[in-house]
Simulated assay, not measured.
Amino acid sequence: MTEPLLDELDRRILDCLVEDATRSHKEIGQLVHLTGQAVGARIRKLEESGIVEGYTIRYRPERLGKPVHALVTVFMHPASSHASFQRFVAEDDRVAETVRVSGEGCYWLRVHAGTHDELNAFLDELLKYGNYRCSLSIGRIK
Rank of each mutant, 00 (worst) to 15 (best):
D93Y: 08
R63E: 14
H33Y: 14
L127D: 05
C16L: 09
P67A: 02
R60L: 07
L119E: 12
H82N: 03
R44Q: 13
S84Y: 01
H116M: 14
L123W: 10
K66P: 15
I13L: 07
P78E: 02
A113W: 04
I141W: 09
Y55N: 08
V52K: 08
R94V: 10
H82C: 04
L71H: 15
A79T: 14
Q86G: 11
R44H: 12
M1P: 14
E62P: 03
D124R: 15
R110H: 14
Y59T: 08
S81K: 11
L119P: 11
D117Q: 04
T98V: 15
H25A: 05
S80W: 02
S80V: 06
H25D: 10
R63G: 12
S84M: 01
A121R: 15
R94D: 01
L5F: 04
A121S: 14
E91A: 10
M76P: 06
L46G: 11
R44L: 06
G65Y: 05
H33C: 12
A38R: 00
A90Q: 11
A38N: 09
P78V: 00
S102E: 13
V89F: 00
R58C: 02
V95I: 00
L34D: 07
T73L: 01
L136G: 08
V72E: 04
L17H: 10
L64S: 13
E53H: 07
D7P: 07
V39F: 11
T98Y: 04
G65K: 05
D20S: 03
D124L: 15
G103Y: 07
H112L: 10
A121M: 15
R133E: 14
E19K: 03
L31V: 00
H77R: 03
I138T: 14
T115E: 01
M1K: 02
P4A: 02
E3T: 10
R58P: 03
I43K: 01
Y107C: 01
A41G: 14
L119Y: 12
V95K: 05
H69K: 11
F85Q: 00
V72G: 08
C16G: 08
